[in-house]
Nucleic acid binder design. Structure first.
Lengths: 234, 234
DNA sequence: GAGTGGTCTAGACCACCTG
DNA sequence: AGGTGGTCTAGACCACTCA
């Protein structure tokens, strides 16, 4: 109603969010349609549309054609996590980055890897293990499988120079990624690699990426738990 | 050029992303202006604008007035993490949720908590410990501090019935939050609470929230590492 | 079938940044 | 000072979904 002079989708977003916050509209309620809101805010429908679209992206409302826009029931919130490139992450801390290739072989993928990457049984894939160091201190142990069907170029790449992480980012950008975070105890191999004790805490990130529904890679990144923190704002 | 019949910002996004992926435009390169792209795609500038705006949000390009749009140098990407409400998380798995209050006292906050919550030394705050169970199995141990200066109502709330998590969400659902994920070994108290062994792996989420720059709460959530996974798509 | 959101257009003005 | 992105408008058509 109060037509803010600097009328904008931003102001409308804030106003609508305010009405959700203070209980004017409750979870599950349907809020007025775009047209009606546009009229009451004295702006065009496109502007209201953008405000609502962004609120929907941020999870505050849910929209459906015909039935309209309603305040989300689900109170959970999205937060953004930055998934950095290891090298950049280390260098941003002012440390010197070093990379060490441990293993690079084309072998038949074990069944759990086949499942994760939608591979047929018995198909060969590229298995790579490597270590990322910050100022010569082990920082991250990487255990990766690459789908050679979709990334054949990986076969002829010299991963002793470039880390598969960076190479893939540059050559094979992904469209979809799935990350799983968990905590576990270090097994012997990982402990040796990271120069910690077997049974120490590990922060583990498992990442699977796809390009147009084609599986590209599946990787397990292990960090010494005490040292790794990932921060996000939400 | 090839005006896709279903011409759309989406198609333009894909096309531009393709040119970034296949190296037609490299990181750091400036890509043509909106007007020029609009002309070559045979669409309006607003449509190109939306495509580029979303690519910028997703981190593929960076935009600045006057200087234009360039392909991002920083290859890191944002992913979205869902931070669920414990009860919903458990119930969504089909398990029965139960909540148990362990501790609820108003005490002088230790220095590390003061620092985290911007409290003056010697100020009292509400300290709550509680346990969330799924089908009677300990699922999450919560160790929380609430700032009574900004949330005085917490003093008179009966947290044996409502978990502080849900109570706060209902009272102040839209505060700013910061999350830190890490892995650590269970200390004795946490191990007892979660019915695991001391030294087992824990997945730890620390969350701090604010309302208008006023610190509300600081909480440490511990999960048995092997059982907790947090998934994200990006 | 009808109502709502999803998107597009053409033209316009503004705000910011850089040279 | 001028170029580029940021946003707004009015009107239009489409697509999905619910009754």
């Amino acid at each position: 109603m109060t037509k803010t002079r600097t009328a904008s989708f931003q102001a409308i977003k804030t106003e609508i969010l305010g009405k959700i916050k203070n209980g004017y509209w409750n979870p599950g309620d349907i809020i007025p349609g775009e047209e009606s809101l546009a009229e009451s805010y004295g702006c065009s429908r496109v502007t209201v549309n953008r405000a609502l679209r962004e609120l929907a992206e941020e999870g505050f409302v849910e929209r459906r054609r015909k039935s309209g826009t309603r305040v989300s029931l689900n109170t959970s919130r999205d937060a953004r996590v930055q998934i950095p490139i290891v090298r950049e992450e280390i260098e941003n801390k002012g440390a010197t980055y070093r990379y060490e290739l441990i293993l690079n072989e084309e072998v038949v993928a074990p069944t759990d890897v086949c499942r994760k990457m939608n591979l047929q049984k018995g198909v060969k894939a590229l298995h790579i293990k490597c270590l990322h160091l910050a100022d010569e201190v082990p920082y991250q142990f990487e255990d990766r499988w690459i789908n050679l069907d979709h990334v054949p170029a990986a076969r002829e790449t010299d991963f002793s120079e470039v880390s598969p992480n960076e190479w893939l980012v540059r050559k094979e950008p992904f469209s979809e990624a799935e990350h799983t975070f968990s905590a576990m105890l270090a097994d012997e191999e990982t402990a040796n690699m990271l120069e910690i004790e077997k049974g120490d805490a590990l922060f583990v990130v498992e990442r699977r990426t796809w390009r147009e529904k084609n599986s590209i890679t599946s990787v397990k990144l292990s960090f010494p738990g005490a040292s790794y923190k990932m921060t996000t704002r939400g």
